[in-house]
Nucleic acid binder design. Structure first.
Lengths: 164, 164
DNA sequence: GCTTGCGCTGGAGTCCACTCCAGCTCCTAG
DNA sequence: CTAGGAGCTGGAGTGGACTCCAGCGCAAGC
């Protein structure tokens, strides 16, 4: 009946997930809605496709596979679980926002370094690290004051990533 | 002499990188500027600390360790290499910007899902996935149209988007 | 009837980025 | 003088997330 269900290859192309990954996600319990043809081939109804996109969003934003599974295991469509699921999603939202802030800080660091190099090159200078990092700092400050750089956002974001 | 050089523990606390990670980064060639005391203990001069922060920025923004190393191997402070390094950093900048866009999209997906749950709960409805994902879509669309969902970021995220 | 292509399964293998450990040295406090 | 604590090294181990593979089934095309 489901004439608009997709085969695994199409889903792979559509989502960018590899075929192997799709199968693996399914085994891991991340994709409950996948159906089968009589001879055992996977069929992805449109709902599954949408679901996959949510899973992808969660994964890409740093939620571990185990947590995604936990989220999914929170029952299929029973009203009782909606609040719980929402809490998890809201937590993830917060995490994403943090990551974005962190990302911005890091971007600022990289841009500052670029500006420093630009300055060094413009002045025909050499060394930077050991001998006169301070000079580089100075350059960066110069650039900052000159408004070449975006006004680096302040410190903050901690620990969304795994480093310890 | 370097009275303001730090020990490994302090650097660890300062940067959030574990002591083991610091040592490992060094072995891997990511931290060339680390000095030693007479009895072999690590001493991190301020320059090293700044360098670590750059490395951290690169790592956190998704550059693999191997690439960071390649970047660093591009000579220490020789003018000839600055342009190359800059190219790498600029590439990374682009990658970061892309990542931020992606993150925004994913955030939107998650928020949409939250809104969908909110809608379902408000209406006392149950199922969502298999049976009537379309309904959820519909709800999401409703919410969007009703402006219930901030089309742009919300709490804590202001200024996160540097639209450009 | 055979080959080619897609898909299936269970399990093994890989890659990355750490993280842990045993066994050692050095220093300081009691 | 001994005990404790911080660091050091080389190497082994871990966890997460895939990725690959052998061996099989089905269907279509020549």
């Amino acid at each position: 009946m489901d004439r608009d269900a997709l085969g695994i290859r199409q889903v792979s192309e559509e989502t960018g997930l590899s075929i192997d990954t799709l199968r693996w996600y399914e085994r891991e319990g991340l994709l409950p809605l996948v159906e089968r043809t009589a001879d055992g081939r996977r069929r992805y109804p449109p709902g599954a496709l949408r679901f996959i996109r949510l899973v992808q969003a969660l994964r890409r934003t740093g939620m571990p596979v185990a947590d995604v599974r936990r989220f999914i295991e929170l029952g299929g469509g029973e009203l009782a679980h909606h609040p719980e699921r929402m809490v998890l999603l809201e937590r993830q939202c917060a995490a994403i926002e943090q990551r974005m802030v962190e990302l911005q800080d890091d971007l600022a660091v990289v841009r500052a370094k670029i500006a420093a190099y630009r300055g060094l090159i413009a002045r025909g200078l050499d060394c930077e690290d050991e001998l006169s990092e301070d000079l580089v700092d100075q350059l960066r400050t110069d650039e900052l004051l000159a408004g070449t750089l975006p006004p680096a956002p302040s410190v903050g974001a901690e620990g969304v990533l795994r480093q310890r």
